[in-house]
Amino acid sequence: MRRVDELRERTVWKSDPHTQVKHLVYRHYLQCWMGKILQKFPEATIVDAFAGPGVYTDGPPGSPVVVAKTFLEHTAYRRFNKLNLICLEERPDRVEELRRQFAKLSPSPQLNISVQPPGVFAEQQPRLSALAHRGRAETPVLWLIDPFDLKSAPFSLIRQCLAGPRDEVLFTLFTNELHRFCQREGYDKTMTPYFGGTHWQSAVPERRGRREAFAAAYQQGLKDQGLFTGGFGIKVSSQSARYHLILATHSEAGLKCWAPVTWKLDHYSGQGASAETAGALSLFDESSVVDRLDVALRTYAGTAQRWETLSSQAARLNHMDKHLRQVLDNLAAQGLAFRVDPVQARTAWPEGCTVRFYAPEDVADEAS
């Protein structure tokens, strides 16, 4: 049976390696998100909008069970406040199976699991949002949106999920399907609502990098809404992305959790992992992939910048603080960056420090 038929006809289906990579991203991100959110806020919510049956025929857990287990097995679990996990699935048979899978877990007074009656996400989103926020707009809500097709999650629906000031979305973008079908006649009627505009058209002329261009276009649409965003490609064995995971968040703190996840799974570029390479050690020097950060820091020539500003710049470029320190080391070796405060420190670039930047012409012989 073809996989598309298996997904359509069976209650439970077999897992695939790319789903496991996606769930690795979920787990790593949730480890950070839970650690930060559930010790700061009295309660928070995760909504799995396309929950599925919660298990695969070959044994691995589905995404809603991955969320629950990540919570229950977290090293900071005893310090956590309340987490509400809301799950929606369209098919009744899968709803029943999901309830059976949750019944196998140890109950916890800190974890409130709510499996909703069968329903379509586009129709249920307003009601789920009200449940998730518990009457308080400030309640942090993380939406996991992993649909089976493009039409189930148009951009307008993603925007609705980001209405609250602490709402975040982790969305599966079908870049392989977009790459394959974008030039079919009439496909624009699907593409434009999926992207929330016609800016997807800029990716079509790209041939070899079209999947990545679609991901970049989608992220630009989120940025135009004033959101912070990150992307990560889940690749097939040929190293082309089958789909991308897109993070949308109102807070730069979300990017601080996102960058370590992507670099942990893709040690070379932090942009994507295949089923064959996720978690493997890189054979490459990371210096070649921090060029964008190097260029960005050089624009600060003639100014002094606080560490918080520099760290923010690094996060927006999907880099971690270790990459920032690496670039600062390189600039300092060229005389282009100096720590001016504090005068004494245990490390070269401690958090809270101030760095003054210079241009290459400032250190040229004739300027001395």
Results as ranks from 00 to 15, higher is better:
Val289His: 15
Gln326Lys: 13
Arg242Asn: 12
Ser282Thr: 07
Gly231Cys: 08
Ser240His: 15
Arg208Met: 12
Thr303Arg: 11
Ala253Val: 04
Ala215Phe: 09
Leu265Asn: 11
Thr277Asp: 13
Thr299Phe: 07
Leu324Trp: 11
Ala304Asp: 06
Leu328Gly: 15
Leu227Cys: 01
Asp321Ala: 01
Arg292Gln: 15
Asn330Ser: 13
Ser237Cys: 06
Gln225Thr: 11
Ser311Tyr: 05
Trp263Met: 14
Ala296Leu: 08
Ser288Asp: 14
Ser287Ala: 15
Ser287Phe: 10
Ala332Pro: 03
Gly221Pro: 09
Ala278Phe: 06
Trp263Asp: 00
Ala259Leu: 02
Ala314Lys: 07
Val236Arg: 02
Ala314Asn: 09
Thr309Ala: 11
Asp291Trp: 12
Cys257Gln: 02
Ala315Lys: 03
Ala215Thr: 12
Thr303Met: 05
Val290Thr: 15
Ala332Ile: 07
Ala315Val: 03
Ala278Arg: 02
Tyr268Asn: 15
Asp224Ala: 12
Ser288Gly: 13
Gly270Lys: 00
His319Ser: 01
Leu227Asp: 04
Glu206Arg: 14
Ser274Asn: 00
Ala315Thr: 07
Leu310Gly: 08
Ala333Lys: 14
Arg208Phe: 06
Ser269Trp: 00
Asp266Thr: 01
His267Cys: 10
Arg207Pro: 00
Gln239Leu: 11
Ala203Met: 14
Ser287His: 12
Gly272His: 04
Leu245Lys: 03
Gln313Asp: 09
Leu297Met: 12
Arg211Pro: 04
Ala275Tyr: 06
Ser282Met: 04
Phe232Ala: 07
Ala315Asn: 06
Thr299Ala: 11
Lys256Leu: 10
Val327Phe: 08
Glu286Lys: 10
Tyr268Glu: 13
His319Ile: 02
Gln271Phe: 10
Ala253Trp: 00
Val261Ala: 01
Ile246Met: 02
Val289Gln: 15
Trp307Tyr: 14
Ile246Asp: 05
Arg316Trp: 04
Lys223Tyr: 10
